[in-house]
């Protein structure tokens, strides 16, 4: 096996994994506490990417663009929560799905109206655009490494926040029994606004990180949103730890499947059959994994207590 290619694939898998985690963390926390399913979470990811791309062009600095875009996304998300989402917390899941589906249509079209359907591409600043040479063949793009590091740092901080701080304790308590937390005198509305902002910020950050690689595009949120669903279903809704493990798992399986699955199939099938079945099976891989896990653990690997 080609070791250089393998290390590259490991990095790609990690990159996808941490991005999925950034998105899934907010989704799973929001669901865990408010029992609210937000399809428009992917829209926040998209809007993060567009804000960052636009502000980067405006300020001509990627770092400044991201620094300005982060609070902008949080503000945007809070307004969204106040104006629309709040009305649906007490509704059933079907209503939430439909309403946030309506939001997706609205945001996709809105972005298309403002920035056109071509999307915005931004260039990386020179200090991020380089390569790190490790040995004779092994060259790693600096920016990919940055994404992985940022993702891991965020994951660790979030884990620390949820596990060791008072806020984290309230979040976990809220995921177990929101009513009880409210009765004990905690303002659940404020708590939820905080959690929602954190989730939105992480989703926005994921969008911003991906913008220089894939450019900001209309509809970019939905593809990744469904993968996120797979992540939180496997991880167990409401659990940060589950989301992290599942995100990394999915990132690896998806990347490795695409890279190596047809090679594996070649060993047992003819060339023709392997070339046909390889792409089909590897694109279905994560969903098959999800189905397999659900057969044995219908509530995911690490379900939070009290999530219905």
């Amino acid at each position: 096996m080609d070791i250089v290619l393998f290390i590259e694939q490991v990095l790609n898998g990690l990159q996808l994994g941490v991005l999925l985690f950034l998105l899934a963390a907010g989704l799973t926390l929001v669901f865990g506490i408010m029992n609210f399913i937000n399809l428009a979470h992917g829209s926040i990811y998209m809007i993060g990417a567009f804000f960052a791309a636009y502000l980067t062009r405006l300020t001509e600095s990627f770092a400044l663009g991201i620094l300005l875009a982060l609070p902008a996304v949080v503000f945007f998300a809070l307004v969204l929560e106040r104006l629309v989402l709040r009305k649906f917390y007490e509704r059933d899941h079907l209503d939430q799905v439909l309403a946030t589906f309506g939001l997706i249509l609205f945001f996709n079209e809105g972005i298309r109206l403002i920035w056109g359907s071509g999307g915005i591409a931004i260039e990386l600043p020179t200090y991020l655009d380089g390569f790190i040479v490790l040995g004779s063949d092994l060259v790693i793009s600096t920016y990919r490494l940055v994404i992985v590091c940022v993702g891991l740092v965020v994951a660790i901080s979030l884990y620390g926040l949820v596990t060791y701080t008072r806020l984290g304790m309230l979040i976990r308590a809220g995921a177990s029994n929101r009513r009880m937390v409210g009765l004990l005198g905690v303002n659940v509305d404020v708590l939820f606004a905080v959690v929602f902002s954190i989730g939105a910020m992480l989703a926005g950050l994921a969008g911003m990180l991906i913008a220089p690689i894939g450019q900001a595009q209309v509809g970019m949120g939905e593809q990744v949103l469904i993968l996120c669903f797979v992540v939180i279903v496997i991880g167990g809704i409401g659990s940060i730890r589950g989301a992290f493990i599942a995100a990394i798992l999915i990132g690896f399986i998806d990347t490795m499947g695409r890279a190596y699955f047809d090679v594996l199939l070649l060993k047992i099938l003819t060339v023709n059959a392997a070339e046909t079945a390889g792409p089909a099976l590897s694109s279905m891989g994560v969903y098959l994994l999800m189905a397999g896990i659900l057969v044995f653990r219908p509530r995911g690997l690490f379900p939070a207590q009290g999530v219905k």
Binding site: F31, N35, I37, H93, L94, V97, I226, F229, V230, I232, V233, I237, T276, P279, A280, S283, M284, Y287, L288, M290, A291, L294, V295, P298, R299, G300, K308
Partner: peptide, 26 residues
Amino acid sequence: RTRGIYFIMITLAFSQMLYFLAVSLE
């Protein structure tokens, strides 16, 4: 085997699986 929100997401994921299957049928 699942309920509520899990059911919504899983049916969504399965349909997405078939979608990608169709996309991969060159």
